[in-house]
């Protein structure tokens, strides 16, 4: 899977003069201005939206746990969806405070390896210790965020267990409340820590700003890799026999398609911010939006389509569209930023 991206980047790296003449490279990048612009106009507003959604979600859990009823339960699902969408809109950012103290993994533990979320949640629900909001942060990272909440809401039998009105339901409710609170805490911490980082980017020397711009560019390319390789290639497989529908992100809640579309929209937004309108490489944004549109118009949830021979072609089309967008982004965005990405990470040795 990686080899496709590798091949593209390696070509870019070793044949700059001959093959890339048509790609204008920014020879005099203003790293400080660009880093601050992306941080202030792309990153921070999305974390603000995420923090607001997590707060509303936590309120929904408090309301439901105080007075469990169908309307309150419905709200849990509504708010989960909104929170997942808000996360998908900023999921590509791996640089900055989100990379500290496993905050990224605390918000969404995916891909789930070694069944960590299931095992951790089972342990959490079967224990008798006090399940307070403040104590969540010290538990396994795997059970602290959206991945655990999704299981609490959408695992087989989870809704009935949450509505059962017994001690088990109370424990599940306390878990949901504590996890949703933890998400507000983590998102708030991320926002708080962006302020001094932006200040540092504004007032410090060029080194950190150049690193920030490089990381933003790398994160953008990584998004295509994650969507193409992990969110599509792994669950879709090379044949329907190799398909793994349950490897799709958010398959339990049915949000796989919508969050992939939001991921791609965020990539298009960032590409547009970097490339502008009308300049070289503007097709990059259009190609990403095409992929986004294909994800939005999938006729059924991605996990259902994976095993359906007649539907797989639409997923392969989406996969190709993501690759096409990735190739254009790889060609134009690093050049526009005046950076090099993947010199070693895509090297393969």
């Amino acid at each position: 899977m990686l080899r496709f991206l590798s091949a593209a980047l390696i070509l870019f790296l070793v044949l700059p003069a001959a093959a890339q003449e048509y790609v204008p490279v920014n020879q005099n990048p203003d790293f400080k201005a660009e880093a601050v612009r992306i941080a202030e106009q792309f990153v921070v507003p999305r974390y603000e939206a995420l923090a607001a959604r997590f707060l509303t979600q936590n309120e929904a859990w408090k309301t439901y746990c105080g007075k469990p009823d169908d309307r309150g339960f419905e709200q849990l699902g509504v708010q989960f969806r909104e929170a997942a969408e808000a996360w998908a809109a900023v999921e590509l950012v791996r640089y900055g405070p989100i990379s500290e103290d496993f905050r990224y993994e605390r918000i969404a533990y995916w891909p789930e390896r070694k069944n960590d979320v299931a095992r951790g949640l089972a342990r959490l629900l079967s224990s008798n210790d006090a399940l307070t909001e403040d104590s969540m942060y010290d538990r396994s990272v795997a059970v602290q965020g959206m991945s655990a909440l999704e299981r609490l809401l959408y695992d087989e039998g989870a809704a009935a267990a949450l509505k059962a009105g017994d001690l088990g339901a109370k424990r599940r409710c306390a878990a949901g409340q504590a996890i949703s609170f933890n998400l507000t805490r983590v998102s708030k911490d991320v926002l708080t820590d962006w302020k001094p980082l932006i200040q540092k980017l504004k007032t410090g020397d060029e080194g950190p700003a150049r690193e920030a711009v490089t990381r933003f560019g790398t994160d953008l390319l990584m998004l295509f890799q994650v969507v193409g390789d992990q969110k599509l290639d792994v669950p879709v497989g090379t044949t329907s026999g190799e398909a793994k529908p349950q490897a799709a992100q958010w398959w339990r809640s049915g949000l796989s398609n919508a969050t992939i579309a939001t991921n791609l929209k965020s990539a298009a937004d960032l590409s547009y911010m970097i490339l502008g309108s009308g300049g070289p490489g503007i097709n990059t944004v259009g190609a990403t939006e095409t992929a986004q549109s294909l994800a939005e118009s999938l006729p059924a949830p991605l996990p259902d389509m994976i095993k359906d021979g007649s539907q797989r072609s639409k997923l392969l089309l989406l996969r190709n569209a993501v690759r096409g967008a990735r190739d254009l982004t790889t060609a134009y965005v690093p050049a526009a930023l005046g950076i090099v990405v993947g010199f070693n990470s895509l090297d393969g040795d």
Binding site: S99, G207, E211, T214, R215, T218, I339, V340, V341, G342, F343, N344, S345, D347
Partner: peptide
Amino acid sequence: APMPDVCGVAAAPEAGTFIVSSGNAG
């Protein structure tokens, strides 16, 4: 220790330290 695109590594003179290099972070 986080460092983007880090790969090169060699022993620095002081025990317990290394020099590390990157494709985009020096």
